[in-house]
Design a protein around this nucleic acid. Structure first.
Lengths: 269, 269
DNA sequence: CGCTGCGTTGACGGCTATCAAAGAACGTGG
DNA sequence: CCACGTTCTTTGATAGCCGTCAACGCAGCG
């Protein structure tokens, strides 16, 4: 099993801007706010393998950072061991808890991941000095909050089938935003799901068995095509919309934070 | 049935500070930030009866405000009518969506409520001018996010019994924070639950029947005492903790935002 | 070749939503 | 003060979704 704990070393007090100059994310408002003028917090670029733990639940909250490539998962664990993934962190999004002494959930790599990390206290000082940075952090936090509340709706009200349909649609929308839409109207999009079945089950609050059964039900109805274990052809988007039962505004919430990110192929990691 | 829609009128551009001077909430950081120096946004104090709708899901997000007394509920509705209460807003907390054009959930009065409201755009201008105000809004938003994610855990992982036990404990803790703890160690605290069974069911993602059954199960085990329909004596806090299955850190998240509020009896509304 | 991890498929049982109906509480008007 | 309708709560019976357990197929790998 790959992974284990990762030591996030944030080196020295020196400004480290070289990785940013080639980074596809550098025009995101958050990065812009970080890179305008002299940046008072050191930033380190690190790579983390699948399964590695960036922070444990209850740890001192030492770092704040952004995901450059790959996907992080935020995991909450009950005392008896049951786990819930409360969110994924996609490229361009922030992770870590500003102004909190402890991490309220574990942060783990759901795929191989490239991160940009800073010391939390340094980051907080930077926010205090630069209102435009704090403003960008506020915007991202508001987006996270909207997403978390939509997930309360999904977890609280929807059947397992609806949750899975919602997830497929939400993932499709996010990807289409990233690559800027379909090439032709009739084109069948294929979602490459790098997330494991186990994580998917935890995120959707169900079991891997139910996920497997439901996906095959969808395939039988010709709504999706199962190309292999991690590639799904979305054959009937309208059928999925009907099955998911979500309002358009709730579907869109998940697409917001990813706007303006270049296609992953162009990322320099 | 009381209620119906409420028109939130925010009067003129004049500074309106008189209600604040007698308000028990005036020393909260948010209010301090609002009341230091000249406040560029007009603030109106309004009263809203139970059941009244302050904003509909999908409405233009016109206002931002704080709850002075009573409880607001944030309600999300699926196209087929199923509803989920995604959060309650307690005295001293903020409601409304800064920097969003539309409300992503309905805002309704779960009890009779007193509010302090401002025009959203004026509030945003005030935040832009005053970093300390934006900072307070960020802190409140981060607290809301932590709470929403703990609710993902509760809704996703816990049984109905555990959710109800969690809710009782969380409510107890919130109240104890507000009034500053128990008078004597052996004292049995009584929680006055002003929220209707229907709202409770929606918040905990269950049915009123199951809530009724579960509360009576707890009463049979001598864990709580049912004084009347809205008063619960918490006889065995440790028993509740065991039943709820939450870690201390997740329980505490819900107590944070209420810190430093004076007892409700002292509120001037 | 055996082992391990992952996905799939089948059978079973429990939790809990739903339906239904009766009882309690409340406000209203006579 | 009482009759009455309305709303909320309680209690019982039923059914269904879906989590759990178990077994199997399959791929990767030392």
């Amino acid at each position: 099993m790959p992974g284990g704990r990762v030591m996030l070393e944030v080196r020295g007090p020196s400004v480290n801007r070289s990785p940013c100059e080639l980074c596809a994310l550098r025009e995101r408002p958050l990065c812009m706010a970080q890179n305008t003028g002299r940046w008072p917090a050191a930033v380190s670029r690190i790579s983390v393998p699948v399964g590695a733990v960036v922070a444990y639940q209850g740890d001192d909250a030492k770092t704040i950072g952004t995901v450059v490539a790959g996907i992080l998962k935020l995991v909450k664990t009950l005392p008896d061991g049951r786990q819930q993934i409360v969110g994924f962190v996609h490229p361009g999004e922030l992770f870590g808890r500003p102004h909190a002494e402890q991490s309220d959930c574990a942060i783990e790599a759901a795929t191989d991941v490239a991160l940009c990390v800073s010391d939390r206290h340094a980051y907080e000082r930077a926010m205090a000095i630069r209102p435009e940075l704090e403003h960008q952090v506020l915007l991202l936090t508001l987006a996270d909050l909207a997403e978390a509340r939509t997930r309360e709706l999904i977890l609280g009200c929807q059947t397992t089938q609806e949750r899975i349909a919602s997830f497929l649609l939400i993932t499709l929308r996010r990807r289409l935003r990233v690559i800027g839409g379909l090439a032709s109207p009739g084109q069948v999009p294929v979602v490459a799901l790098k997330i494991s079945r186990k994580d998917l089950a935890s995120y959707l609050s169900t079991s891997i068995e139910t996920i497997s059964r439901t996906l095959h039900q969808f395939a039988d109805k010709r709504i999706i095509g199962l190309l292999d274990h991690e590639h799904f052809a979305i054959r009937d988007v309208d059928g999925l919309k009907q099955l998911c039962g979500l309002a358009a505004e709730d579907l869109d919430i998940f697409a917001e934070p990813s706007t303006k990110i270049a296609a992953p192929q162009m990322l320099v990691v």
